[in-house]
Design a protein around this nucleic acid. Structure first.
Lengths: 174, 174
DNA sequence: CCTATCATGTAATCCGTTACATGATTAT
DNA sequence: ATAATCATGTAACGGATTACATGATAGG
């Protein structure tokens, strides 16, 4: 049982395993794609390697299917649950940086109007997608995902506004 | 002259070198700290290694001081300028993900009120910092940094609003 | 049957972070 | 002088991305 460092990736895997119970990497991929993946994507390879790391640390267990494909199945352990719980309960969260590539370009002198065109459509598309998810969300969905989605919507709206104003400043309140 | 891949870090270094002319890694660090570092920080080690990479690719040149410390001095080459120009002119910018650790916690069930306390003060602090920079900005500062800062301000404001509403929903428009 | 696509993994590479180390200035 | 901080690097490590490879399933 090695010491391993828990990264955001680790918590995503732990969180998904907590929700899903036993799952294969591909199962995790599917789960992630429909949920947390909307604002934090993982490479598929990570969903194979990260559970291995977590297993080495005792946060998950690995079993193998008996039948034909003998796929690897992972489950969260008590230790994993504790770690997840501790993480969730700790309000000291590292600050994220904006780290928008488009912002970098803007900063270093790219033409705002040109950039804006692409950014507006990208952010609008994402916004539409988020709103569709929200409108189709069954009442059973937990608060967390709902609130996270709400943040995503706000963010996209604000970015659309920002780029729209950059692209065509109509005085203000156009 | 090797093929190297240009990452956002590369463009930051190139962009800073374009602004600064010849500079040492430490000089770059100082420059970055007062500008782009507000929304995209680099480790100091990167400011020593990245210029080396760029030199290997022919995007910058390295010279050494004649005098005592014989520090390394980097300058952008024509090739570097071209690369920077092409990057700036290409509106096809990768989409950034939100990747807020706090959002991850929220998603996976952390207590919103508890999280909010920390987030509100962090985002308020950043907002205050940004506003101070904006208010102290000399008229000579280029559009790019100014607009990037504006985006940062909007972002922080929106995040403050979001967490405030989560922490204490006063109906709406409290 | 054949070919997409879905699914399951491993290996190599590389960038970013962290840690280590030391030289030069400045302040006390 | 000496401590503190500023400055200048190198080395090790590790996680994330990318590339490679192959097996299973479904659709035509």
């Amino acid at each position: 049982m090695q010491e391993i460092r828990l990264t955001p990736t680790s918590y995503i895997v732990l969180g998904l395993l907590e929700l899903a119970g036993e799952s294969t990497p591909y199962g995790l991929k599917q789960l992630a794609a429909g949920s947390v993946g909307h604002f934090w994507t993982l490479q598929h390879a990570q969903l194979y390697t990260e559970p291995e790391r977590l297993a080495a640390g005792g946060y998950v267990t690995r079993t193998r299917e008996d039948g034909g494909r003998r796929r690897k199945l992972y489950s969260i352990t008590d230790r994993g649950r504790e770690a997840l719980e501790e993480w969730r309960g700790d309000p000291a969260t590292d600050r994220a940086e904006l780290r928008e590539p488009s912002l970098l370009k803007l900063f270093f002198g790219a033409d705002p109007k040109q950039l804006a065109a692409g950014q507006i459509s990208a952010h609008r598309a994402k916004l539409t997608e988020y709103e569709a998810i929200r409108d189709g969300m069954p009442a059973s969905v937990a608060e967390g995902p709902r609130q996270a989605l709400d943040m995503g919507i706000r963010y996209e709206r604000e970015m659309v506004r920002f780029w729209e104003e950059l692209a065509g400043p109509l005085g203000h309140r156009g």
